[in-house]
Amino acid sequence: MSIECPYCEKLVDYNFGDPLMETDHWIVFLAPNQSNLATCVVALKRDQKTLTGLSKDEWDDFILLLESMEKAVKSAFDATLFNWGCLMNTFYLEGKPEPHLHWHFIPRYKHAVNFAGFTFDDPHFGYMRPRPPKNISSDVRDKIADKIREFI
């Protein structure tokens, strides 16, 4: 793993675990909150604050990553659709780290998914509503990550 920025280094320390995958320009972590099964954070591997600062190579690499992640999660858990968000709001709150370009990858499900002894449902399918964290063990997180990796 080659990380060139403090934000990505912090993801490793903030209970995100090992990366799911890494490309030349991006790194993907399973998010700690799995209220939507297979939610991930996709971070640029260099310091950058805005989308307008991405190079053509970084955009091209992101498109390949996007296709790979959607295919993998569709195959692993039969996700219905995918929300991608680049939300930088909290970086501008006092006491937060410097802004760093990253995406939230949020699979959405029109049906419940039973996996590793848990039922993952999406009661707000079709809407973006905040959901409380789903408490799962690190063992279940590892099983989710491994299932996604099977299809990457």
Rank of each mutant, 00 (worst) to 15 (best):
M1L: 08
I3F: 05
I3P: 00
E4K: 04
C5T: 08
P6Y: 07
D13Y: 03
N15A: 13
D18K: 10
T23N: 03
D24Y: 03
D24Q: 10
H25L: 05
H25K: 07
I27T: 13
I27W: 01
Q34T: 04
S35G: 13
N36K: 12
A43D: 07
K45M: 08
R46I: 13
R46T: 04
Q48R: 02
Q48F: 00
K49I: 08
S55F: 07
K56A: 11
K56W: 11
E58F: 09
W59I: 05
D60H: 14
D60Y: 07
I63T: 12
L64P: 00
L64W: 05
S68P: 06
M69Y: 07
M69W: 13
A72H: 11
V73T: 10
F77P: 03
A79I: 12
L87K: 02
F91P: 02
Y92W: 05
L93Y: 09
P97N: 02
P97S: 02
P99K: 02
L101I: 05
L101R: 00
H102D: 04
F105R: 04
P107V: 12
Y109M: 13
F115Y: 08
A116M: 01
F118H: 11
D121R: 04
P123T: 12
G126N: 06
G126K: 04
R129L: 13
R131A: 13
R131H: 14
P132K: 15
P133I: 14
P133S: 12
P133V: 14
N135R: 10
S137N: 06
V140F: 01
R141T: 09
D142L: 12
K147D: 07
R149F: 09
E150A: 15
